[in-house]
């Protein structure tokens, strides 16, 4: 299915969840936050939150900042 991942079109498996997405795209980071369509998905709901065609997903990680 087609989604927008961090502003870029991406093709995900139909069975993709937030948890599977983070496993693929979270990289080495142990602290990750995810928003789907402008709503925060708490870590406790990553496994059970499925994704749908057209979803806009942001996968964010810590970085240095003022």
């Amino acid at each position: 299915m087609q989604v927008t991942l961090n502003g870029v079109p991406a093709d995900l498996e139909q069975t993709a969840t937030v948890a599977s997405l983070v496993a693929m795209h979270g990289g080495e980071h142990r602290r990750v936050a995810v928003a789907v369509n402008g709503q925060v998905v708490p870590r406790s709901r990553w496994e059970t939150t499925g994704l749908a065609t057209g979803d806009s997903i942001e996968v964010l990680v810590p970085t240095a900042g003022g």
């Binding site: 961090n6 502003g7 795209h25 979270g26 990289g27 080495e28 980071h29 142990r30 602290r31 990750v32 936050a33 942001e58 996968v59 964010l60 990680v61 810590p62 970085t63 240095a64 900042g65 003022g66």
Partner: peptide, 30 residues
């Protein structure tokens, strides 16, 4: 010490928090 969130593609190394943990500081996200 302040920190930020950015898309994973644009972030600095994942070791940032390890460094700050080692310093024993409290984090203040912006």
């Amino acid at each position: 010490v302040t920190v930020a969130l950015r898309r994973v593609e644009a972030s600095t190394s994942g070791a940032l928090l390890e460094v700050l943990d080692r310093c024993g500081v409290r984090l203040l996200p912006n």
